[in-house]
Design a protein around this nucleic acid. Structure first.
Length: 837
RNA sequence: GCCGAAGUGGCGGAACUGGUAGACGCGCUCGACUCAAACUCGAGUGGAUAAAACCGUGCGGGUUCGAGUCCCGCCUUCGGCACCA
């Protein structure tokens, strides 16, 4: 704060956002106000990242809801003294642009996805400028640019060399509408639909490229030192699905058959085995007389989709394959069955069935009349002979040879003494070992589409899949392609792309025509913002060391598993390639909710409930729209748009404007108590607003600023505005408004006689001593109910407070003919008198 | 079924480590300005009541001088996972 009162040239003009917003956007642009010098180490760095959008060509209210508060938070940090990097770019590969091209092809027109995408990017950059955000566009990243996707290919080759990228044939999820395979993560919901178009997926047996994310399963479960919402951590943890247990080997005539179990302690109760119908041992083990029956069952299973299986409920089906395995601890021969409730993709695709302890095995045993042996005794009151369902609770091991008498305490893995004892026994006997499995599958990255990163792989008759040499990168996506009305990738019919030579032998070879999942692009893009045009490496090690990891990352919850898990995986891979020395990309994560239409439904053209931000800006101005979006409620909750609700922030900015630009009319003297109260209000607001910004509570920050404006309006007079206290209040108010409403605050800053941008000012700090009130109001309770209020000085003694409390007229009524048995004084808050009548 | 989050006025939502429930805003009511309306400004606004007593944070208990907040048992909504061995 300056120590002289500035002359304000009052002029009675109304707040007109349409005049001031374009004016300041232009000035900021010209002065490169938001361009960040990445090599400026004079201030601590802060990397504030918000998820880059797909260039749909139209900035909608959801983008505003995501970006405006993120911008405010980044601006706040800049005023707090950080060198803040707040970049923006475009997730430019993907289906919408390609589908538009295919659609055009059906009409006989030629619309190239690249042309369309870049046009839409131009339009969105312009729309973004309306928002008044401090994006540093000099660092923009566009993922469909060969400069960018070249490095996707580079990373792919590095991973291929390390065995982290591999190709395998297996049943995969296929979206018939998007005409491509999907990663497991992109198949969602009970009805297994495509994440982007909600079409039910089908299974196809295809040879596809994968990233070995499962190698990092254990590390991905570790969220130590990450300030992430529990919800997201929970979702990823569920998805990875860690199970601790043991692998046990059973002897069969086809050789050793390994099963995974979380309950090795119940091995003595394993009375049969079940294999997945696809298990490789099935053909070998099936006896001659069972061949036909087994073949039929396998065929039925294959024909059934997952939805069919679900629709049939959980009624167990299966067939005995005419073979036996030896239970390694009891020595008994137990029958081997196949059933579709055992999945080939999990564990070893084979289970030991313990009908006593597992509900599925129990149902199977009941249906097919198989033995049930009790192995855990819960307590004396349970009749083991009269089971109607499996028992998986705690108890004492029985009928279990060497582990008889061990306690199963109901905990998972080795936390249960019985499980630990069983694993020890298996390992000592050499028949099994402790093991952990994960539900997580490897990331399928092949897509049968055009508009994505080509794989740097060629197929040679002699050498198989061969990596394209690094010096030949990028493998450019050809632009002279014809889109098939069928939706099939044009790469398949593009001769000069398809036909090439083998890098090893020089003979004719063909290129891989699939392209990479676009989640590849977003798995490392934040590094590229640091050096978007670097030609010799994907990232700059020096800059990455200084700027990464990202300090705060914001975006929608819909990426909780997909993008955020892939990005974590990729960061660990890049670390293991030796390019960086950290393994987590985003230190702090905050998710915004979804902004809904006024009818509380998702905004969609078909519902007709879309709120268009361009219209809002032309009606209210960007600052008001920003303020309202932040004021609407907690950011992570989202909620419905309310066209009446925006009136609140509209009036608030209008009142702030008049408070500062209108000459005072009242004549109240600027006496000491008034000024002290004014100062208290200002400093209290600074404290609260600061805390709220730290905690991403934009709604309450704005409420505090409204309170401050109301308080200042009340105390405003010709005399008061002449004081330093008033000026300090005005400056603090404008500064605190700056991150939220950057245009009006810049204008008010100028009009109050300041030079230079408010956005280069530092955040106000508060004085603890200014927060102290002279006197405080205390509630007087009698038996916990408020019966009166007293006003006492801040330093009043406990006795004085009690004296005042008891003589308060309404309180005194209650005290008549009553005995006070307890007196509780909470300083600054209340007095509670406990009486007995 | 397992795991997680949340239930507060007519509405969006506040409430720090248990301490005056409903900040701030919308809406509504009354008033001023205006020929009138809009804007703006001022006053009021949880319910019930003439007023006090009283009733109020999903429901039922409990702990405490005092519970939206802590404990036990439920209900509802939302999200994730699920024939995962």
């Amino acid at each position: 704060m300056s120590d002289t009162v500035k002359e304000i040239a009052y002029e009675s003009s109304r707040y007109n956002p349409h005049e001031i917003e374009p004016k300041w956007q232009k000035k900021w642009d010209e002065s490169k106000l938001y361009e960040v010098d990445l090599n400026d180490h004079s201030k601590p760095k802060y990397y504030f990242l918000t998820m880059y959008p797909y260039p749909s060509g139209d900035l909608h209210t959801g983008h505003w809801y995501a970006e405006a508060p993120a911008d405010a938070a980044a601006r706040y940090l800049r005023m707090k003294g950080f060198n803040v990097l707040f970049p923006m770019g475009f997730d430019a590969f993907g289906l919408p642009a390609e589908n538009a091209a295919v659609k055009a092809a059906r009409r006989g027109e030629n619309v190239h996805p690249a042309t369309l995408t870049y046009k839409q990017i131009d339009r969105m950059v312009k729309q973004f400028s309306q928002l008044g955000a401090m994006f540093d566009w000099s660092k923009m990243v566009v993922t469909c640019d060969p400069d960018y996707y070249k490095w996707n290919q580079w990373f792919f080759l590095k991973m291929y060399e390390k065995g982290l990228a591999y190709k395998k044939q297996s049943p995969v999820d296929w979206c018939p509408s998007c005409n491509t395979t999907l990663a497991r993560e992109q198949v969602v919901g009970d009805d297994r639909v495509c994440e982007r178009c909600a079409t039910p997926v089908i299974k196809k047996d295809l040879s596809q490229w994968y990233f070995k994310i499962t190698d990092y399963a254990e590390e991905l479960l570790n969220f130590d030192n990450l300030d992430w919402p529990t919800r997201v951590r929970e979702m990823q943890t569920n998805w990875i699905g860690r199970s601790e247990g043991a692998e046990v080997n059973f002897d069969t005539k086809a050789g050793k058959l390994t099963v995974f179990t979380t309950r090795p302690d119940t091995l003595w109760g394993a009375t049969f085995m079940v294999l997945a119908p696809e298990h490789p041992y099935v053909s070998e083990l099936t006896s001659a007389d069972k061949q036909a029956e087994v073949a039929t069952y396998i065929e039925e299973t294959q024909r059934k989709t997952e939805i069919d299986r679900m629709a049939e409920g959980k009624e167990k089906t299966g067939v005995f394959i005419g073979a036996y395995a030896k239970n390694p601890v009891t020595g008994k021969e137990i029958p081997i069955w196949i059933a579709d409730y055992v999945l080939m993709g999990y564990g070893t695709g084979a289970i030991m069935a313990v009908p006593y302890g597992d509900q599925r095995d129990f149902e199977f045993a009941r249906k097919f009349k198989l033995d049930i042996v009790a192995v855990v005794k819960p307590d004396d009151s349970v009749d083991l002979g009269a089971l109607d369902k499996a028992y998986d609770g705690p108890g004492i091991m029985i009928n279990s040879g060497p582990i008889n008498g061990q306690i199963h305490n109901g905990e998972k893995g080795k936390k249960s003494p019985a499980v630990a004892a069983a694993i020890d026994y298996l390992e000592a006997q050499g028949i099994g070992k402790g093991a952990t499995t994960y539900r997580l599958r490897d990331w399928l990255i092949s897509r049968q589409r055009y508009w994505g990163t080509p794989f740097p792989i060629v197929y040679c008759d002699e050498h198989g899949a061969v990596a394209v040499p690094y010096e030949d990168l990028p493998v450019a996506l050809p632009t002279d392609v014809e889109f098939m009305p069928t939706g099939e990738s044009p790469l398949k019919s593009h001769d000069s792309f398809l036909n090439t030579t083998c890098p090893i032998c020089g003979k004719n070879a063909t290129r891989e025509t699939d392209t990479m999942d676009t989640f590849m692009d977003s798995s490392w893009y934040w590094f590229r913002y640091l050096t978007p045009h670097k030609t010799d490496a994907p990232l700059d090690a020096e800059l990455a060391k200084h700027w990464a990891p990202v300090d705060t990352y914001t975006g929608g919850i819909e990426h909780a598993i997909l993008h955020l898990m892939y990005a974590r995986f990729f960061t660990k891979v890049i670390r293991d390639l030796g390019l960086i020395d950290h393994g987590e990309p985003f230190k702090r994560l905050r998710n915004q909710g979804i902004i809904l239409g006024e009818d509380n439904e998702k905004m969609s053209k078909s519902r007709g409930n879309v709120v268009n931000p361009d219209n809002l800006v032309s009606e209210y101005g960007a600052d008001t729209v920003r303020t309202y979006l932040m004021f609407i409620g907690p950011w992570d909750q989202g909620g419905p748009w309310n066209s009446k609700g925006i009136e609140g922030p509209t009036r608030f900015l209008g009142r702030s404007w008049t408070l500062i630009t209108d000459e005072a009319s009242s004549d109240t003297p600027a006496d000491k108590p008034t000024l002290k109260e004014l100062k208290r209000a200002v400093h209290s607001a600074i404290k609260e607003v600061t805390d709220d910004f730290e905690n991403f509570q934009f709604n309450t920050a704005i409420a505090e600023l409204m309170t401050l404006v109301n308080a200042m309006s009340k105390s405003k007079s010709k005399q008061v505005v002449e004081t330093l206290e008033w000026q300090e209040g005005l400056e603090a108010l404008i500064k605190m408004l700056a991150p939220i409403a950057p245009h009006i605050s810049e204008e008010l800053w100028e009009r109050t006689g300041h030079t230079g941008s408010i956005h280069l000012e530092s955040w106000p700090s508060y004085d603890e001593s200014a927060l102290v009130k002279n006197s405080i109001s205390m509630a007087i309770q009698v038996n916990g109910k408020v019966r009166g209020q007293i006003e006492v000085s801040i330093d009043a003694s406990k006795d004085a407070i009690l004296e005042a409390a008891k003589t308060e007229s309404n309180v005194a009524r209650y005290l008549e003919n009553a005995q006070i048995i307890r007196e509780i004084v909470v300083p600054g808050k209340l007095v509670n008198l406990v009486i007995k009548a």
